[in-house]
């Protein structure tokens, strides 16, 4: 299955609220499991991924650490601040393992930009290793 949120498929990071040069947001879409984006303090934190072209998203798989509350939002346009809520989740705490979560997205919405909005965490910093987007291009 194609992972639309990957550099290989033409995805890009267009915005992020934390940029530590050792752990940049591009690590989320590099297709590698061990690299991650690290936040550098405070909430909320967000990152916006732009796909090569609009996707009909059916699910989003996220692998992360210390994330508590997260919202997924989508925008139809490739360059807009009009986002609609796709899903809101609260992840369980796991002090010893990555959180691997699959979020189903209903409603057949066309999404060109996907925003991950982390509104709280289980620690002062959180990490996002990977985001995989399934759907139809």
């Amino acid at each position: 299955m194609l992972d639309y949120a990957s550099v290989k498929e033409g995805a890009q990071i267009v915005l992020s609220t934390s940029s530590d040069e050792n752990h940049p947001p591009e690590n989320i879409i590099d297709g590698l499991d061990e690299t991650f984006w690290a936040t550098t303090g405070l909430y909320p934190q967000e990152v916006i991924i732009r796909f090569k072209s609009p996707i009909n998203i059916s699910s989003v798989a996220i692998s992360c650490f210390n994330v508590q509350k997260i919202a997924l939002e989508g925008s139809e346009q490739d360059n807009s601040d009009k986002f609609v809520l796709l899903s809101e989740q609260e992840f369980d705490r796991d002090d010893h393992h990555k959180q691997n979560e699959e979020i189903r997205v209903e409603g057949n919405k066309q999404v060109h930009c996907l925003r991950l909005l982390i509104t709280s965490g289980y620690d002062h910093f959180v990490a996002v290793y990977n985001v995989k987007v399934n759907g139809r291009g």
């Binding site: 530590d20 050792n22 752990h23 061990e34 991650f36 690290a38 550098t40 303090g41 650490f65 210390n66 002090d95 010893h96 990555k98 620690d123 002062h124 910093f125 959180v126 990490a127």
Partner: peptide
């Protein structure tokens, strides 16, 4: 924690 979780390296490092 860092020993337990080397993948969390940067996070602890940050703190």
């Amino acid at each position: 924690k860092q020993l337990e979780l080397n993948h969390q390296d940067q996070i602890d490092h940050g703190m």
